[in-house]
Amino acid sequence: MPTATQISMVPVVVDNEKCIADKGCRTCIDVCPLDVLWIDEKTGKAHMRYDECWYCMPCEADCPTDAVTVNIPYLLR
């Protein structure tokens, strides 16, 4: 069965200027209960890879540099 790749606007945004993942930080990735934040191979920064978010906010609350913003997923806004 062939599959397609669909795009989806993700609720969590990381400010690449502020993110210090390149210095080894993984805090938001560690704490996310849904495991949807990963390192973006292109930028070396954290990003939301899967649109499966409970908008619960540990990622934003625990980020040491205030780089994370959690928005309400578009379908619920």
Partner: peptide, 13 residues
């Protein structure tokens, strides 16, 4: 009702 799979009352884990 929103259709968002993870918009549940419970933590979806």
């Amino acid at each position: 009702a929103s259709g968002y799979l993870y918009g549940t009352y419970e933590n979806p884990t």
